[in-house]
Design a protein around this nucleic acid. Sequence first.
DNA 1: CTCCTTGCCGAAACCGGTTTCGGTTAAGAA
DNA 2: TTCTTAACCGAAACCGGTTTCGGCAAGGAG
Lengths: 356, 356
Amino acid sequence: MTTPAKPLLTNRATMRVTINDMASALGLTKSTVSRALNGYADISEATQLRVKRMAEKLDYQPLSHAQAIKTGRTRSLGLVLQLSDHDAHRPFLAEFLAGVSNGASAEGYTLTVASADDEAHMIATFQGLIADRKADGFILPRAMVQDKRVTLLRDAEVPFILFGRQDDDAGCCWHDICGENAMRDAVLHLARLGHKRIGFINGGLIYNYAGLRRLGFTAGMAAAGLTVDSTLVIEDVVTMEMGCEAGKQLLRAKDRPTAIVCAVDRAALGVYQAAAAFDLQVGKELSVIGYDGIQEGAHVKPPLSTFAVDAQKAGERLAKLLVRRIQGEPAEKLRETAPAIFLDRGSVGPNRSQLQ
Amino acid sequence: MTTPAKPLLTNRATMRVTINDMASALGLTKSTVSRALNGYADISEATQLRVKRMAEKLDYQPLSHAQAIKTGRTRSLGLVLQLSDHDAHRPFLAEFLAGVSNGASAEGYTLTVASADDEAHMIATFQGLIADRKADGFILPRAMVQDKRVTLLRDAEVPFILFGRQDDDAGCCWHDICGENAMRDAVLHLARLGHKRIGFINGGLIYNYAGLRRLGFTAGMAAAGLTVDSTLVIEDVVTMEMGCEAGKQLLRAKDRPTAIVCAVDRAALGVYQAAAAFDLQVGKELSVIGYDGIQEGAHVKPPLSTFAVDAQKAGERLAKLLVRRIQGEPAEKLRETAPAIFLDRGSVGPNRSQLQ
DNA sequence: CTCCTTGCCGAAACCGGTTTCGGTTAAGAA
DNA sequence: TTCTTAACCGAAACCGGTTTCGGCAAGGAG
């Protein structure tokens, strides 16, 4: 057995300036330099300033994984993507990732991304990343009702933040879009246009948002003085195909709805197909409102009226909040929601049915 | 000035087993343990085995950033996404990322992702990641003709791999899909169906693939015994809107093409709109072939015939090749291509024009 | 039997930081 | 003047690894 193959580069061309360089440039010891940069109280203001100026001048930045071996924190955020979940978040993935990455780097953090096929692989991935201290905290996209990630991270005492909310909220912080308000507003908007029989196609029940959006829908119906017909509510629809099926089922009803609210745009696009199968014109004979604001919605005819979520902004907020969590702020202080923006396009119109 | 806020956790619940634990469990020194695990020749086979067994038993894995401070390598791959480029790679982003992440973790590497808005931000991001040693090597998606990333990384002597190819190939390794073969085959397929006037809508000229695909198109025309009408070739089309415009321009020609080959699916979807504007039925009066295999192509009517690329597989290969590059294999040995898979769906038919 | 390798491992330095622990100096109190 | 105290910084240990160097024992050659 021979010595292993030599790496491509032992010493990289770009020689960094280390804390020792700083120390000798300043005539101080490296311990003083370190404490000055970290704002310790036992270093005089004058010295702190001198050190920080020199750091600026020499463009010194401590090597994150060098400090990590002592501090345990590596200034990086973790993000584990689950792929099996019916590509529900693929449309926003690029924006979301950009947001997270920007938010992280604005705070001096980097982003470590992993992916997992199923739940078992997922928790194994988390455990690996935690054991290797690859991330100081995690961003959990798509909060679920029974979220194993939450229990895992809570047990391991690793900071995390949810994109979505959580009922069992101990140690949970989050940033979320108020989907329930959007659903409520959708119903109210339709009611104002004279719609009375309004169908609801909900999203994936394993996700926490589904319960909230159903609540928003029923709240809207109640506020509009309408009663919810449980035969007009279909749950757990996440793809266009399923949306088409659900749409057909609703349109097949003897007292067909004049409007359908969808918890996700993909389902709404499926409803377009169902409407076509029933020779109904969307926006005239059938009103449809979606949620998500995916690009395809702008290209169908008529353009889908929907509630757009700013995935990039959400990613950025999540990253920034997680950093604050890592730095010790209590979880309860780090919970916020943002509204979805209604895009009133072509798929909604006044109720034309005889029943009105 | 007080001491900074205490971090959330000083010692995490999950106590790792360190090399010292290994050493004392084995009755060896940590230097011996380290060399045994790294396969040094001056450690006896018996001891190596004993150490490795114990590592297995105790589930010991060296902390990557602890070794990094000495070795300089942190077992992580870097990926910088550029967002401004007309969302050309967004459709595959999820699959691509999954592939990269899987390939990396199969080799014991993690993935560090960053994003950049423009070129300046991009190189700044690279420099930051390099200075902080956040990645041992980089995956460069979408090889460009003049690729600043390549020159930057070459200068910094940091390993990298291209998704795409590069003319100035010193130090470059890559994995790429043979788009030129796909374009050639598209032409040959159309020629066999009697098409003679074949238009070509090329993709973004800043990318290296555009030149290759144009070459493939002209090679196909030559092989089919057809001459290229330069008025039927439109360059630099990357969005559906631009594809629609380009399609209209082609269909406006006095001797209108009976088939159009598109270097990217988005352009092909634009051609669908153009065809609708000219009251031409795609697949009958106008044949269209795309390239990429994006999901939307399966949902339009008729379904778009296209060449699908396996983005996940590509990501996986890229990660694995990059690891080999990092471990010292010469770049020339790490260049490979894969074919795109033709999906013969509904948008291609025999030439029905009177001219045939 | 001595000398020289060779095989094998321990000791110690090192990587780039952080953090604890003292020690010195100057200022204020007695 | 002397003692105490606070302010400030250096020395050294430490984090979890890697790598160089040197030493010991066994084996082969002379």
